[in-house]
Amino acid sequence: MQQTPSVGRVVHYVSHGTPVRPDGTQEFPRACRAAIVTEVDPADPSRVGLAVLNPTGQFFHPLAAGGCVLDEAPEGARDGGSWHWPERA
């Protein structure tokens, strides 16, 4: 059964992480963060606006700024700035 995003649903947002240093390390790597869907693109339901909850604060990614796109790649291969459904526990 395929899920459909709607306002108020909890999803995971993949953070971008900090830039990679010349030695290949990062201060903060990409990570999944809790997010709440704030709006859904009626023309493309895989694109949503999100309110992202981070340990250091909240960030907003509205549709007006491009929103976030669903990434169904396996964990570890998802693009920063994307969202996906939480894994089943």
Rank of each mutant, 00 (worst) to 15 (best):
V37A: 01
V69P: 07
P55I: 06
P55A: 14
L70K: 07
G24D: 09
V14K: 06
V7I: 02
F28I: 12
P42R: 02
V7C: 11
G17W: 09
G8K: 04
T4Y: 05
S82H: 03
G57Q: 11
S82A: 00
R21C: 13
C32F: 07
A65N: 13
V37M: 01
G81Y: 04
D71T: 09
P55V: 12
V20S: 15
A51E: 10
V14W: 05
E75L: 14
E72I: 01
P45T: 00
G49D: 10
E72W: 02
M1F: 10
H61K: 00
T56A: 14
V10I: 15
V69N: 02
E75Q: 12
P29R: 14
C68Y: 02
F60V: 14
W83R: 04
A64L: 01
A73V: 03
V40M: 01
G24N: 11
E39N: 03
R33V: 12
A65R: 12
V48G: 00
G49T: 00
L50H: 00
H84V: 08
A73W: 05
P42V: 04
T56H: 11
A51W: 08
G81T: 01
A65Y: 08
P62D: 06
D41Y: 11
I36E: 07
E39R: 05
V14F: 02
E72D: 11
G76R: 00
A64D: 09
L63D: 05
T38I: 04
P22W: 14
G57N: 13
D44N: 09
T18P: 09
P55C: 12
H12D: 01
L50K: 02
A34G: 09
A31D: 14
P74E: 14
G66M: 12
V48F: 03
A34E: 13
E72Q: 11
A89I: 04
G24E: 06
E39H: 05
H16L: 02
H61W: 03
V69Y: 04
A31R: 14
F60M: 13
V40P: 01
A31E: 15
T38N: 07
V40K: 06
V52W: 03
L53S: 03
A51H: 07
A31M: 14
R21W: 15
T18A: 10
A77S: 10
G24L: 09
A73E: 08
P55Q: 14
P74C: 12
Q3P: 07
E72G: 03
D23T: 14
Q2H: 15
W85T: 00
Y13K: 02
R47W: 08
P55M: 13
W83F: 01
Q58M: 09
P45R: 07
M1Q: 03
A43R: 04
S82R: 06
E87L: 13
E39F: 05
F60E: 13
E27T: 11
G66W: 10
T56K: 09
A43H: 09
A51V: 12
A89L: 09
R88E: 00
R21H: 15
